[in-house]
Design a protein around this nucleic acid. Structure first.
Lengths: 160, 160
DNA sequence: AATCATTGTTATACTTCATATCTATTTAGC
DNA sequence: GCTAAATAGATATGAAGTATAACAATGATT
């Protein structure tokens, strides 16, 4: 999150730092673009008292009732210990419940409450609007190409 | 950074967690793809004892000799206090020096040493190879479209 | 039954990132 | 010129994200 307003008087006295070398890398462009998205997303989720991780967890639980914590951690690509505090928070706010799994008393079946599903609805709508706002400069073809490219990079995991 | 090897016996018993809602968002695809890139980049930089931030700082200092710390912090989109430790590390390893600016005794002019420039050469080559490895599935047209899209998103900062 | 694996948890540590505050300078206002 | 405000860098501190080790309870394997 950057400062709300830069204190430069005019665009002309902006420091002319060359990042030409880094601009050769797609990863650099992705990081800078994602920083913008994440900043805006954080602001978008703030009214709902959600962070990116609690939002992601809530969405996945609503969409996959009965999910185990270990499955959710794997889906979110985080370690199990780190998920515990996220689930703790969602449970404390009564957005989800930890139901015991009868067939495996070690595990919890995660389910959203009515309040959780209602917050989900509002948050997903807000994030949809946030994306529409940030991506107005990209036509549908471009968005499709970018998404396809991201999937290819994502699946290139473990090769090489 | 994920586990080196999943302990699933076969792809068929992978948990079938639906992230269909999140897949509607380009930001979600970007985050997942960038996680893969960042993991691989971290491994790529490890032999040089560099992290993404120290690598970025080194590249910008080599490319912009005489840079001030505040300019570098702004270019890297981080706060000045956080840059201090990064510069400390690069200076301690004698990859850069903090020269005093004669016209402004508050500021430092950052410059790379010979060792810094040599490490830069090797690290940039390694990162170039890392990108080529991860992006083999993307043809040049696609890469250009993605980069242009990232620039548009990056510049959409502050609108709305 | 004994061993091993898994689920969730606690404790811990490291990295990133943000803020407030301090100093020493420099710049601006009077 | 002299005081006040702004700036450069540094220190201290805290929140958040991420990773590992180790544990208790339970389940699976042999």
């Amino acid at each position: 999150m950057k400062k709300p307003a830069p204190k430069r008087s005019s665009p002309s006295d902006v420091a002319h730092v060359s990042d030409a070398t880094l601009r050769n890398f797609l990863g650099y462009h992705m990081k800078r673009a994602f920083n913008v998205i994440q900043s805006d997303l954080t602001q978008t989720l703030k009214p709902f008292d959600l962070r990116m991780l609690t939002y992601t967890a809530l969405v996945l639980i609503v969409d996959n009732p009965g999910l185990r914590q270990s499955q959710l951690a794997e889906a979110m690509d985080i370690e199990r210990p780190n998920l515990v505090v996220i689930i703790d928070e969602l449970e404390r706010r009564e957005l989800i419940v930890r139901d015991r799994v009868p067939t495996d008393r070690r595990a919890y079946a995660l389910k959203a409450t009515l309040a959780g599903r209602q917050l989900y609805d509002r948050a997903v709508a807000a994030v949809t609007a946030h994306e529409e706002r940030l991506l107005t400069g990209l036509d549908q073809d471009t968005r499709a190409i970018v998404i396809a490219a991201m999937k290819i990079v994502e699946r290139s995991f473990g090769e090489g």
